[in-house]
Amino acid sequence: MMKSLLAALALSTALSFPAVAMAKPVTLSATLRDYGGNNAYLAVYVTDQNNNYVGSLWLAGSRTRYFEHLSGWYNATGGDSSQINGITGASVGSGRTLEVTLDLKDALFDAGYKLHIDAAAENMRESPNDVVVPLTAAGAGKPVKGRRYISSFTYKM
């Protein structure tokens, strides 16, 4: 009886290790410039080595009628809400920092994937690919400058 219990425990432990190893909590942190306008909508998504859209990681802003202004993301998804169910939140104010922690697959890193952030704010220019950064283990923790709205972006593992 004791032996079989121990065997079951060892087996479940062995099975859970790979799952743990495959999971990676990653914190994305985007600080916006003081651009002085209304809250910005941000779309965070991933493309593969051929620049094909793979999937979305986060969308800041909830009104679908504004999604088309996140043009890179919108062109890839057609604004399909099912792409962002469970990964949306409020839009982000000028000068504020958005911090999102996600459990991402290890396979995303050092495999040619790129993280993109599209940004837009009312009465201001759209900024597709405000940030484009390769997802690599070496790039973690290194700040990247955005083009228009995002002053600094980092991902930490």
């Binding site: 495959m22 999971a23 990676k24 991933v46 793979v54 999937g55 979305s56 990681l57 986060w58 969308l59 909830s62 009104r63 679908t64 009628r65 999604f67 057609g78 604004g79 399909d80 809400s81 099912s82 792409q83 962002i84 169910n85 469970g86 990964i87 949306t88 939140g89 958005l98 911090e99 999102v100 922690t101 996600l102 459990d103 991402l104 697959k105 995303l108």
Partner: peptide
Amino acid sequence: AAAAAPAPAGSVPPPQNGLFDNGTAPKV
């Protein structure tokens, strides 16, 4: 094309798009 408002974080698991490891809700 966008018909319905997306479900906010925490109300449903993240989409199964191959990027997320499991159904853990994002922390924001």
